[in-house]
Design a protein around this nucleic acid. Structure first.
Length: 277
DNA sequence: CGCATTTCCTGGTAGC
DNA sequence: TGCTACCAGGAAATGC
């Protein structure tokens, strides 16, 4: 999400108010690129974001939805100009830069148009939790959401349902900060753990946004810049290294088919202080 | 409905 | 050097 928000902030002053002269799909047809040609002739009214989805309301009552996946890059056309992974090209009126390109080597991204009233037809959008940095992400609401699931807390966070925008990197980072084991059942967290985790999610996402996101490989903003948050990661990518808090060796595992790193000392599976009262 | 598993996809890299 | 095998993961589809 921090990466998406960084991109959104660059796109907004460029795209807001611009009319789409043409919308060309170079990727194979499919649901990931449904109806994108319909953007042609409509004016982009804003560049907003929900979770990791960028939502661009269009003047004709449609919504342009862009999801970067893992490797999607939005850029002005004159910067990259073609290439084997060019999936979409938009022409805009109103002067340079007048071309927006969407490149996506791994094809996990999406670039589609739906009716505004039906934008929540995408399953994840329909069930998306509150914005993590918004006022709707409350202690009570988060606790109520976690109480509904017996899945591992990390898996549940990645589902986007209890809160929007938490990806694999930030799930591991937030759980480490909150000292919660990634395999702990969501509904097993104490009220204190829930409250600490909520703040940890907010803090790590806000800190990453302030650093323009995390650049692991391909991530670039439209202007070509990379993020700087990778230098602040405490656990992600650090399996086998020492925990910055206690010095123990961080453990790498797989949770919900996703690479996961946690500290076996700071994040015990069983609650600490069983006799404390 | 909830949850687990599988699928999509290819650049990068480890290993030989 | 050049080849193969495998890993990375957001969301949707599928299975139960």
């Amino acid at each position: 999400m921090p990466e998406v928000e960084t991109v959104r902030r660059e796109l907004e002053p460029w795209l807001s108010g611009r009319r789409v002269v043409s919308a060309e799909r170079l990727a194979p047809a499919g649901p990931k690129y449904a109806d994108l040609e319909r953007a042609s002739g409509q004016t982009i009214q804003a560049v907003t974001r929900r979770g990791k989805f960028m939502l661009l309301p269009l003047s004709g009552g449609d919504e342009l939805i862009i999801h970067l996946g893992m490797t999607g890059v939005v850029s002005p056309g004159h910067r990259q100009g073609g290439g084997p992974h060019l999936r979409v090209r938009l022409r805009l009126d109103g002067g340079e830069p007048d071309t927006l390109e969407f490149h996506d080597p791994r094809r996990f991204g999406r670039f589609l148009v739906v009716r505004s009233q039906e934008y929540q037809t995408l399953p994840t959008l329909a069930a998306l939790g509150p914005e993590p940095l918004g006022d709707d992400f409350t202690d009570a609401g988060f606790a109520a959401a976690l109480a509904r699931s017996r899945a591992p807390i990390k898996t549940y966070l990645l589902s986007q349902r209890p809160v929007a925008g938490v990806g694999n990197i930030y799930a591991d980072e937030a759980l480490w900060r909150a000292r919660v084991h990634p395999l702990a059942s969501a509904n097993s967290l104490s009220r204190v753990q829930t409250a600490v985790l909520r703040v940890a999610i907010r803090d790590v996402l806000a800190a990453s946004i302030a650093a323009n996101g995390t650049t692991l490989r391909d991530y670039r903003t439209p202007a070509g810049a990379s993020g700087e948050f990778e230098g602040y990661l405490d656990v992600y990518g650090r399996g086998g290294s020492e925990c910055r808090s206690c010095g123990a060796v961080l453990v790498k595992s797989v949770v919900g088919q996703r690479g996961t790193v946690h500290c076996p000392v700071c994040q015990p599976l069983q609650p600490q202080d069983p006799g404390a009262r």
